[in-house]
Amino acid sequence: MNKLLHHSRTSFHSVIPQWSSSIDQEIQYAASRIGNASFIENDPNLYAPLYRNLSMFKSEGERPIMHTPVLIGIYASEGWFMKQLQDHKKFVTKDPQKAHLYYLPFSSLMLEEKLHICSNRNKKYMSKCIRSLCNADMKEGFVLCKDVSLPETNVHVKNPLRNLGSNRPSERSILAFFAGKMHGYVWPIVLQHWENKDPDMKIFGRLPRGKGNKNYVHHMKSSKYCICAKGYEVNSPRVVEAIFYECVPMIISDNFVPPFFEVLNWESFAVFVLEKDIPNLKKILLAIPEKRYL
């Protein structure tokens, strides 16, 4: 078998076209990267003696960009979108002549982590697609009225609507609430201006975690406005959390297109503040009439 493998590889290399196309060159480049992969002696999940070259196997063994739906984590809505589309057979046809659209179930998260440079280089191709994604950033090529913005939220599969609802407006003693570890450049600015600066503004770094995150949820349910500042990306799971706990989202994220923007009138139930106006947060909130808040 080893002789056959060696002969096959030798024969393959002998028929590589002298004037190869760009596609051939890309395939050859990928093959050379696999062939020259950094050496790995062992792996806790793989038994090395079973492989001719564990390093080459690992190079090809990373999770693919095209994937089955991921239904947990803050990008779960992309996975649920895929799953529901696949499960509703009336939307799907196997006959390409009957299709209005071709759906490619790739992971935006994996594109960001694995092919960030490559995806930027191929924006001219992505511009021809309708993208459904959580990170709807207009600076990164998201196009209003073409692309679709999905919510970013931690989906609780067993009970997605747990803790839904909250205190009455008259029982909310906190004007605005925010808490979180440092994440991106906007959060430190919020803390710089408001942490421990005003009793009406409960602005913290990371809160001590109570059982089931109760401390965080309690503050959201006791606040009129919940600050949803961008992290490393424009979107934030706090937007959906605020809505779940009936706390008005105060979105601080320039260039962010909120979920289902073409359908929902976000300005009727959320407050948008420019990043440059963070020092004026309390002034902006106090200027909102009580009737409009209610």
Rank of each mutant, 00 (worst) to 15 (best):
P208Q: 14
Q192W: 12
L144Y: 07
E78T: 05
Y125E: 14
S59E: 04
I65D: 00
L109E: 12
Y232P: 07
V148P: 03
E233A: 06
R162M: 09
Q84T: 06
V186C: 04
A99S: 06
F12C: 13
H219C: 00
N154T: 05
I23D: 07
D198G: 13
R121E: 13
N159L: 11
H219Y: 06
S253L: 01
I203P: 07
P259L: 04
F244M: 08
L207C: 06
K124M: 14
G79P: 11
N42S: 13
F269C: 02
V155D: 10
Q86K: 02
A242C: 03
I72M: 06
L101N: 14
R33F: 09
K230T: 01
P151D: 11
S222L: 15
F106G: 08
K3Y: 13
R168V: 07
E195A: 03
Q18C: 03
R9I: 10
A31W: 13
L281I: 12
S127T: 10
P160V: 07
N163L: 12
E60V: 13
Q84H: 07
D198C: 09
K291N: 12
K221C: 00
H6Y: 15
E112P: 03
L111G: 09
S21Q: 10
F177D: 07
H13N: 12
K146S: 01
I252M: 08
Q86E: 12
N120R: 05
T153Y: 05
G73F: 04
V190Y: 01
A176H: 05
K291T: 13
K214C: 08
V190W: 02
I284P: 08
R121N: 10
Q97R: 08
P279Q: 02
V263K: 12
D137H: 06
A48T: 09
I284Q: 10
Y103M: 04
E152R: 08
H7S: 15
D147L: 00
P237D: 03
L5Y: 10
M201P: 07
G231T: 01
V186L: 15
H156N: 05
F204P: 15
L285Y: 14
S8E: 06
H218D: 14
E78A: 10
V239A: 07
G79I: 03
M220R: 02
F12A: 11
V92E: 08
N159V: 12
L46G: 00
F260T: 06
I65W: 02
H6A: 12
E171V: 15
N154Y: 07
K123W: 10
S108Y: 09
K202H: 15
E26S: 01
N135Y: 05
F244V: 01
C228Y: 02
R172F: 00
D137G: 00
N36V: 00
W194S: 00
H218Q: 06
K282W: 01
K291H: 00
W80M: 03
S21H: 14
R162L: 08
Y29M: 08
M201W: 13
P169F: 04
T93P: 01
K128T: 11
S38I: 14
N45A: 06
